[in-house]
Design a protein around this nucleic acid. Structure first.
Lengths: 255, 255
DNA sequence: AGGAAACGTTCGAACAGCGGGAACAGCTTT
DNA sequence: AAAGCTGTTCCCGCTGTTCGAACGTTTCCT
């Protein structure tokens, strides 16, 4: 996000979170492993780990340290306090019941899409996505719906920061094509995803905007490509989605 | 948890998490507020906040900084990777459907009970508890079920560390009474909570033990006191619960 | 069994870098 | 117009972090 940055970071804090990241990536590790992986002295890592452990942020489990459930406490707190969560959750549940597909609520943060709540429909695909997952905005329906409804300068700076990495061979990787699609999305008010993030999965996404028209999040419906097609994909789902997002926007304005 | 601790913590890391804690408690704050609350210089707080923000861990929202959804990512990761989660979740869902009450899966960590998954029954009370919530083990059914099935020395050290704080006027605050109850719980295999954590709420909890018999977590059913009583409370629910926890224990052993 | 390797842990010393105060800039308030 | 409040930047001094080496245990290997 920060294009330039003239500030000198607190390196000790960075190493602490580097350690946390290693423990997340490797799903638990010992002192020596961490030290090797980060190029730090064992004693340094040891002191950090003991500090984090004494705060309860890490848990020793046999011969490895793991991230503790304190992060779950922090994370759920963040979600519950988000202005969108309380308003969007019932609508997401409704949509899942109506469509029988997987429905996600996604918010924008630091130029990425974050899945904060998902509801299972009766036939919903066991999806790739998890709560908390971060995805590039150009790679999926909800993300494109958000991206299309951000101010132009933010769109540019996001594309500048993250580029257009491919997830499948259908992912948009050309700037021109993206801008064309964004214009279309702005026109009709919703976005499609045809195997652009996962092969075999289609999705429809619609933005949730604040009073000034800027997207703060989106709701999407995802399902198998062979079920989400024709009128269901192009007419029914968009209409259901827009109904839901409109309600959310109204409730959001009066809260 | 650490009764002794001869190690000197990394103070810079502690202040970083102190800041995170303030932002969680106050639900967002400015630089000056944080500095005042922690007794630090504004410049110090500023550097820390900018460091955390550049990592994406904080988000600036108007004139306050907030904790970001990265913590949700960390937290959900912790939960998903927990050996109990995958095994217990379907059983918790089943129990909620069978009993129509609120069902929780709780694990032990650092001598406290952490709610990692909850399922709504059709009539379930909108409960106090949230995912990620930490509760003293002596204050609720799942906690007492866990506590009863820990090694004696761990029980002692936990009571030493946390004491017996009251949550309601029914909470156990006497050591003798607690030990009596724990013995009973060990005998019959499950625990009751009669308005000990929330007035008007009863619950039944049963432990989930590993091969060596030590509890690693518990499952509980909670509901209004006037519905959870008589045979339902003392016979039916315990029997359903024990069926579920036994299955979980078996699946846990073979995974 | 015995030895070696690998682990987490402790210690002291050295200098990087963290913390603090004061000054600056932008904004609203009075 | 000026005074109050922000967040931000600078630089200096000293604290506290880092590292390497050595210790004590356990595990693995031959």
């Amino acid at each position: 996000m920060p294009s330039e940055s003239q500030h000198r970071p607190v390196e000790t804090v960075e190493t602490a979170f580097d350690i946390v990241d290693v423990l997340k990536r490797d799903d638990g590790a010992g002192i020596t492993d961490i030290a090797d992986e980060l190029g730090l002295a064992k004693s340094t890592v040891h002191r950090h780990v003991k500090t984090l452990e004494s705060r309860g942020l890490l848990v020793r489990e046999g011969d490895v340290y793991r991230i503790s459930t304190w992060f779950l406490d922090y994370g759920i707190h963040v979600r519950n306090r988000h202005r969108l969560y309380d308003v969007a959750r019932p609508k997401v549940d409704e949509l899942a019941a109506e469509t029988n597909e997987k429905v996600w609520c996604v918010i924008e943060e630091h130029g990425m899409g974050v899945h904060i709540y998902g509801a299972e429909g009766r036939h919903s695909v066991k999806t790739h996505a998890r709560i908390g997952q971060r995805t590039y905005l150009h790679q999926f329906a909800a993300g494109k719906a958000i991206l299309a409804h951000l101010p132009d300068n933010r769109i540019e700076s996001i594309l500048e920061d993250y580029g257009l990495a491919a997830q499948t061979d259908q992912t948009i990787t050309e700037r021109d094509e993206l801008h064309d699609q964004l214009a279309t999305i702005r026109d009709r008010g919703y976005a499609f995803n045809r195997e652009e993030s996962v092969i075999g999965v289609h999705a429809v996404g619609a933005p949730i905007r604040n009073k000034s028209g800027t997207a703060i999040g989106a709701i999407s419906v995802a399902g198998p490509a062979n079920r989400l097609r024709d009128d269901l994909m192009t007419e029914e789902l968009p209409s259901l989605l827009l109904g839901a997002t409109n309600e959310v926007e109204i409730n959001l304005a009066h809260s």
